[in-house]
Computed example of a mutant assay.
Amino acid sequence: MAHVHNSLGDYEKAEDYFLKAMALVTDPAKKGGILLGMGLVKERQGSPDGALPFLQKALALYKESSLTEDGSSLIAKAHMSVGQCLEGMGDKAAATSHIRSAVRIFRKTVGGDSPLTANALGILGRMLLDQNERQEAEPVILQALELEVAKDAFHPDTVWKLLNSLKELWTEGQAQHQLSELRTHCSRYVRPMRMARDRIVSHQPSDGEGKYEQGTIAVIYKTAGELFMLAGEYDEAVRFLQEAVLFLQEIKDFDCRSLIASCHTSLHFLAGQLSHAATADA
């Protein structure tokens, strides 16, 4: 009942049921789940300070009940909860340390290609990028993207966030990048971007009313098109950006004019580059 009330947003009742359950349960795994649930209630109530002790107790309990400190995916899940709570409190270094531990334990317990590992890698990459640890963040985000586009349950919003993080790595901040560097790194994104498009198209019937939300698909195509451009794959960049424009033009409940204008600016640049290349080849 506690989890039901928590999911319904009735946090006072959820907290009451969790506290009653905690007094009755002795099994470490079940008690750890109750503690994590209590922590989630406190976070949703806007009290990360109140949530953290419950989450830390859950982590300690899972460690105590395991033969080793990395012997269970439950320990990794608790690290994830503690890490994200600490991030919300502004302690980025401690948060990142917990997420690193979660990634390591997930790889050991559920495998490197598990959705749990993919999610943890995505969060770790985002945290590293937020701390301007760009060199370390880039391969982590790329690995998360590769796992996300390959797993059974395809989540476009997650894919877009990862693509956008990769774009931010090369287009924001003070660092200046050589064209050769951009192409070398961004060419590694080509395969997962193509896989993402294949996943989208496989659920997009001819009438255009596909399984996925149009706005998310539009920004996936736009961001991927811009990354194809950075990779020097100009023909493919044009195709993705043109598809982005088509999707954006169909959206009626949001003003997409600036996004469409951005696509047209990129397409104008690409037209010039392709024309120049054709002239040079002639």
Rank of each mutant, 00 (worst) to 15 (best):
S97M: 12
M89R: 11
T96K: 09
K92T: 09
H79T: 04
L116K: 15
K63Q: 09
T68N: 06
V82P: 11
G112F: 10
S72R: 10
S72M: 06
T68E: 04
A78K: 14
G111Q: 11
A95R: 02
H98S: 12
G111T: 14
G112T: 13
I99N: 03
K108I: 05
T68D: 05
P115R: 10
A118N: 06
D113R: 10
G83V: 02
G90F: 07
I75Q: 06
L116T: 11
R107W: 11
A94G: 04
A118H: 07
M89G: 05
M89H: 01
K77P: 08
T117D: 02
L74F: 08
A102T: 07
S65A: 05
S65Y: 12
M80R: 03
H98M: 05
S81G: 01
G71F: 11
E64D: 11
Q84K: 14
K92F: 11
F106T: 01
T109K: 12
V110T: 10
S97K: 13
Q84I: 11
H79G: 01
N119W: 14
S81D: 10
E87Y: 15
R107L: 07
M80T: 04
A120F: 06
L116H: 15
R104T: 14
K63A: 00
G88F: 01
S101C: 03
L67F: 13
R104Q: 08
T68H: 03
D113V: 05
